[in-house]
């Protein structure tokens, strides 16, 4: 079974983003970037499927500027077999990403496609479901367990107030939640070797798809700060304050 994982190059999760002085966007110039953490979980899951003999080949795909290669190198160092960069300088939004991924899926014919449940930059959480709809496949969102059975997969999903389990016909799309696995630590030699591996680059414009952004950002702003609070000395004072605030 061939597995395809989609990965996104995003601002590192430890970095607190800053808004540009003109309020037009977030300033990511010179900021540390890396693989979207949910996508790293997707890569890990695909590689584990290969190590168990379930997957035969794992392909990682990313979409974006040339520097997105760094995230593909990360996936290669983790152990994916093949890396594809669909290169574009256009800001790609989930619908465009889903269309571009669909074109690679039509060529590669994977049985399982794994993506992160959301990217930690735009926090939209749409791409996997959009892709599933475009290729008319079943989907298992927010996966915490994936079990491959004969001709189908069972996905345990983290939903509001608990979990559920769905069976999906193959090919299927799965989006990862935090507890699906813990991605492996990359050893330095693997990272060095990944630098030498080939990356296939496709020019997004050559695919003839409408990938123009549909959403236009008018403004980016810092949220209203909370008014400063106070320290209380003990439980009695805390209870007193809560009484005065009329929340007890």
């Amino acid at each position: 079974m061939k597995v395809l994982v989609a990965v996104k190059h995003v601002v590192d999760y430890n970095i607190k983003p800053r808004v540009k002085p003109d309020g037009s966007d977030v300033d990511i110039a010179g900021v540390k970037m890396g693989i979207n953490p949910f996508d790293e979980i997707a890569v890990e899951e695909a590689i584990r499927l290969k190590e168990r003999g379930v997957a035969t080949e794992v392909i990682a795909v990313t979409i974006g500027k040339a520097n997105s290669q760094d995230t593909l190198r990360h996936a290669l160092a983790m152990g994916v077999d093949k890396a594809v960069l669909i290169q574009t300088d256009v800001e790609v939004q989930p619908l465009a990403v889903a269309k571009l991924l669909k074109s690679v899926i039509e060529r590669e014919q994977p049985q399982l496609i794994i993506l992160g449940k959301q990217a930690i930059d735009d926090d939209l959480g749409q791409t996997g479901q959009m892709l599933a709809a475009l290729i008319n496949a079943g989907q298992g969102t927010f996966a915490s367990i994936i079990e491959v059975k004969a001709g189908e997969i069972e996905v345990t999903r983290e939903i509001d107030g608990g979990t559920d389990v769905v069976a999906l016909k193959l090919p299927a799309v799965v989006t990862t939640d935090l507890r699906l696995n813990e991605p492996r630590f990359i050893k330095l030699p693997n990272l060095m070797m990944a630098k030498k591996k080939p990356i296939e680059t496709i020019n997004a414009a050559d695919l003839g798809l409408d990938i123009n952004p549909r959403l236009k950002q008018l403004k980016a702003a810092d949220p209203e700060p909370r008014k400063p609070g106070i320290k209380v000395a003990n439980v009695a004072e805390l209870v007193e304050k809560l009484r005065l605030a009329e929340v007890l």
């Binding site: 989930p94 749409q126 983290e158 939903i159 549909r214």
Partner: peptide, 23 residues
């Protein structure tokens, strides 16, 4: 923006070929 709707609405947007605005 619940687990249920997060699973459903992007599929709808994709088939209608429109963007979705989350959360």
């Amino acid at each position: 923006h619940t687990a249920f709707s997060k699973s459903v609405l992007p599929r709808v947007a994709a088939v209608l070929d429109v963007a979705m605005v989350s959360d």
